[in-house]
Amino acid sequence: MDKLPKIALPVIFAVILVIILISKSAITIGSGEAGVLYKTFGGGVVTDEAPLGEGFHLVAPWNKVFIYEVRQQEKSEKMQVLSSNGLEIKLDASAWFEPKRESLGKLHQEKGQDYVGRVLLPAIRSVARSVVGRYTPEQLYSSKRDAIQQEIFEETKKIVEKQYIQLNEILVRDVTLPPAIKEAIERKLKQEQESLEYEFRLVTAQKEAEKVRIEAQGKADANMILSASLTDKILQDKGIDATIQLSESPNAKVIVIGSGESGMPIILGNQ
């Protein structure tokens, strides 16, 4: 009984020490995350091995694990840039991105956990200023927004992919022009639309007039051909045919043979 406390104390102390070591060594990496291992006595950041994946890990208590989100993320940015003629344009854009998992150690070693603020956002701002500066406010407002979005994406991607960042998309959500410039552009676009509508009506009217003229000319040509072909003999034959048809009609009539001009019959009747 006297020896039990002497044995129990070291055991209890060892158990407590193990619990402390486990608590210091246990790392749980959540869904959509990865860990970069830092070895205090083993060369610092591990860059030649895959990062720690999701789940439970035991790490030496003197080492550290830096956790990164490796799924797609979004970062919004509002910028003030200048157009090609020096007018100030407000640009609201979003970037979809994620760190390159296989290069996570190098990203941590060279850029750190604030890589978004150190690399991604400065690149987006610089490229946006360059791209928007190629266009006039009218182009930015009307027809070139998709082109601007694509150019910002492609040029930013070339920069950040060398910095261990995968850029998936750039979305230009809004382009805000100075109110006076916006109103002037809207007036010009309205006038252009009205001009196009007037030209359309004019062309339509010209086509309709041409159609009527062609139809009238066709009828006139047909009448000329018909008149040229109608001789006295043909007219007399047609008159005889008409007289025969009328004589066969049930309506009451009186036919006087040879009393008309050129000997054509005259038909008298009440119907």
Results as ranks from 00 to 15, higher is better:
Ser25Ala: 15
Asp237Tyr: 04
Ile267Pro: 01
Ile267Gly: 03
Pro51Gln: 06
Ile234Phe: 00
Gln113Ile: 14
Thr204Arg: 15
Arg129Tyr: 04
Ser126Glu: 09
Asn223Cys: 06
Ser126Met: 14
Asn168Lys: 14
Leu104Tyr: 07
Glu194Phe: 04
Ala180Thr: 11
Gln150Glu: 15
Ser76Ile: 09
Val116Gly: 07
Arg101Trp: 09
Asp232Tyr: 03
Ile22Val: 15
Asp146Lys: 10
Gln193Phe: 06
Leu120Ser: 08
Glu215Asn: 08
Gln166Phe: 05
Ile89Glu: 12
Val256Phe: 02
Val45Thr: 15
Ala252Gly: 06
Leu82His: 09
Phe56Val: 07
Gln149Glu: 15
Ser130Phe: 05
Glu186Gln: 14
Val70Thr: 13
Lys144Leu: 10
Ile267Gln: 01
Glu69Tyr: 11
Tyr141Lys: 10
Arg187Ala: 12
Leu87Pro: 01
Ile89Trp: 01
Gly55Gln: 04
Ala216Gly: 03
Ala8Trp: 05
Gln80Ser: 07
Lys188Phe: 02
Ile27Asn: 12
Val127His: 03
Ile67Asn: 05
Ala34Glu: 01
Leu21Cys: 11
Ser143His: 12
Leu246Ala: 09
Ser227Glu: 02
Ile267Trp: 03
Ile267Thr: 05
Pro99Gly: 08
Gln206Ala: 13
Ser143Cys: 07
Asp174Tyr: 06
Val132Ile: 15
Lys78Glu: 12
Ile266Pro: 04
Ile148Thr: 11
Lys162Met: 08
Val203Ile: 07
